[in-house]
Nucleic acid binder design. Structure first.
Lengths: 344, 344
DNA sequence: CGCCAAATTGCATAGCTATGCAATAATGAT
DNA sequence: ATCATTATTGCATAGCTATGCAATTTGGCG
């Protein structure tokens, strides 16, 4: 018993031979707008169909230097927001003829080799959704002069553009919201220390509280942006933190961990005993068992903005682009509303 | 003000010129195991570094026919299991030197053009995580003779291998578990009609119930594998379905929707009034507000199996491979345990 | 039928790397 | 010092498509 021979794609020359025309004719048949007579076109199409010919994009990449590939680097720390983002990105990239190469980077260890690999595929751009992108990593990525788009990062260069949520302003809004809901003792549940997003959210929250005359703010420190980390941190630190009556969390997954720690480990009621809020508005935030007040950052808008910037960068390589700040909006749900009874 | 010139990668010839050696020498320096003297190597590396040379993989693809690219097709219906799966896939593919091209397919509309695009990038294989893959789509994909791996699909051909959970057996176990927990009136919350996974789970569940002497099984029909669909279906059909006291759902997201409908719309208690179970064991299933009994299907194992099969397919193209069934295990949590008090 | 413009077709080439083969250099043995 | 052996190097080429340019055909029209 013999295995089939390895798959061998038919080339345009093969098709040309079968159709009795030149290779150019084949190429033109598959190039929109090129000059081919109807008769030739028909012969070519028939031969192509018989050989199951599919033009390769590879030689084009070699000639043009454009691969139509975008690398997407994810952190994969289990934040569902990434999944939404990725899907939206795919949908908006598709009509523009781009394909995504998706990579996961644990931390930013090994970025040098990562950048090299991406360069070897000649990707047209890199979109990084990492929560943390160190300066050294950024400079490694920038060495090949590939346009890079990051989120909530502080890095800037002609090759790196950052798109950020309006973390400070939205967090200030959240402070006011919690104050209006009668909170007195505030806590902020922070993500990893080196996450700029987390820092900015804390800063905005703290400043707004101070302006309202609240000096005391307890900062809890979670190690990762995960449910488990939110749960454990809250469970272990809530009491010694002085039992705050409102916890604002650096993102939604943390908030959900915090909520469950309050409910099932500390025996408290949300929102009756403690108000809880998050950031991101992941789908799970609207699940009724959590029904979490949070800051929404629509992936559609985020991706649309990212691609607008990206197109500029591709059109004018090396030209310095302005960083962009998106407006986030507060979504009020029952996790911060003592009087509301849940309805459906 | 002038924009920088468009990025132009240095070629091996450029490096060779600068280093005063032949292009071959450059290539050999970057080819492990090739014959280069230490002196030449040093000169090349220095020149390469000066020019920021990174060998392109594109000409290799052209010569070898292998792109080291794997296409991953996702359904993107908001099932968090996909995210886990994708991440695990990335991690196991990385050390083997493969990169992933990720695509989302809404339904299986437009598969023909999708297959063509993937073929034009000369992807080495396609991994489809679509819940639904129609026969026509499959045959379109198979036209280019690219190895395809699907999950929970009934399609078979030398180019398509399916990896399935042991849906029937696991569902039978679930039936026994629910019986043991004292359930009397059973319901199954079905996913989209054309999903084989959903059908098999229903079949296994029903058969096991019948063998235990339970003839009555209410089947609820959700339109999509989503929280919202699970919620709405349960809300609208629970009463007229005769108020079952146990609902087994085709997957976890459906189950969570069902739970919240029972709790917040119908005012019932889970597990006191109704037992609820799901399938997949997504991370959210262990979040304490749900704490859902389910069938686990570790992504690590799933991906490991998929890649083992894939390697065989790549080694022996066109050789018929056996489909694989994985064992799923029941994870018991409090959503089916009336007596347990939640602890943390 | 003849001529000009327009459409179509074919030829030749660029783009970049890995590798077989032949040529050259280095090494080691005697 | 001479020769045999091994290591290194360079040359030339395959792999496939899009496209500028020149050559050819077609079509229109007087």
């Amino acid at each position: 018993m013999k295995a089939h021979p390895a798959r061998k794609y038919a080339s345009s020359t093969d098709v040309a031979r079968l159709a009795g025309v030149s290779q150019s004719a084949v190429s033109r048949t598959f190039t929109p707008g090129a000059s081919v007579s109807a008769a030739t076109r028909a012969k070519v199409l028939q031969a192509a169909s018989a050989l199951e010919y599919q033009p390769s994009i590879i030689p084009q990449i070699m000639l043009s230097g454009k691969s139509k590939l975008i690398a997407v680097v994810l952190g994969g720390l289990g934040n569902p927001y990434y999944a939404e983002f990725l899907q939206e990105l795919a949908q908006q990239l598709e009509p523009r003829g781009y394909k995504m190469i998706v990579l996961y980077a644990q931390s930013d260890y090994g970025f040098e080799v990562l950048a090299a690999q991406l360069a070897s595929y000649r990707v047209d751009a890199i979109i990084s959704a990492l929560a943390v992108l160190s300066s050294t990593s950024a400079s490694e990525l920038t060495a090949f002069k590939i346009p890079i788009i990051t989120f909530n990062s502080d890095e800037r260069s002609p090759w790196i553009v950052s798109i950020s949520a309006n973390n400070r302003h939205a967090s200030a809004q959240m402070a006011q919201h919690l104050l209006a809901r009668g909170a007195k003792r505030f806590a902020f549940l922070c993500g990893p220390v080196d996450s700029p997003a987390s820092q900015h959210r804390l800063a905005g929250f703290r400043t707004a509280l101070q302006q309202a005359g609240v000096e005391q703010l307890i900062v809890l420190q979670a190690d990762h942006f995960t449910y488990e980390s939110g749960f454990e941190t809250t469970k272990q630190c809530f009491v010694e933190a002085g039992k705050p009556d409102a916890i604002y969390c650096a993102n939604d997954v943390l908030a959900m961990g915090a909520m469950d720690a309050l409910r099932f480990s500390l025996g408290l009621n949300v929102p009756k005993d403690v108000l809880v809020a998050g950031f991101d508005d992941i789908p799970e935030a609207s699940w009724l068992s959590y029904d979490l007040t949070t800051i929404t950052q629509p992936p559609v808008l985020l991706v649309k903005t990212a691609l607008r910037v990206l197109e500029k960068m591709l059109a004018q390589p090396g030209q310095k682009q302005l960083s962009v700040t998106l407006k986030g909006e507060l979504v009020e749900r029952s996790s911060t509303n003592r009087s509301s009874s849940r309805k459906a």
